[in-house]
């Protein structure tokens, strides 16, 4: 942890440069590359998780012996992350399962909406 007491904040500068690089890489993957859409989504989400890890471990002082490692409730954070994963993945699973593949589903919905509107008009 020399970076904390030294004059130059090495850890922060490395984390900052990595964050910028990852942001630009994600932007390029999304708008500049010819990858299939699914792979774009998977890769930029992976880049986001790496960047979040950089913020947590290089900026947010999660690992510090000076506090005798008593300042971070690891179990609570783990609990929060697990709940977040269940809420997001569970919602998507519940709302999308049983409707066929996601791509077709969008089309179905638009079609259904148009139909509903159409029916609405004929009733009046």
């Amino acid at each position: 942890m020399a970076g904390h007491t030294g004059r130059f904040p090495v850890k922060h500068v490395i984390g900052f440069i990595l964050s910028i690089a990852l942001t630009l890489l994600a932007l390029w993957a999304a708008l500049g590359s010819d990858l299939p859409t699914v792979w774009i989504i998977v890769s930029i989400m992976a880049l986001a998780i790496i960047q979040a890890g950089i913020q947590l471990f290089m900026f947010m002082h999660m690992i510090e012996s000076e506090s005798h490692n008593g300042h971070v409730p690891w179990n609570m954070i783990f609990h929060g992350l697990v709940l977040a994963a269940i809420v997001v993945a569970g919602s998507l699973f519940t709302m999308y399962s049983g409707h066929g593949s996601g791509g077709d589903h969008d089309g179905d919905m638009k079609h259904e909406q148009q139909q509903e509107q159409h029916e609405g008009h004929t009733e009046h």
């Binding site: 994600a26 999304a30 708008l31 859409t37 989504i41 989400m45």
Partner: peptide, 11 residues
């Protein structure tokens, strides 16, 4: 940034 803006611009 990733899940709203980037994915919103890709899909």
């Amino acid at each position: 940034f990733t899940s709203v803006y980037l994915i919103g611009m890709v899909v």
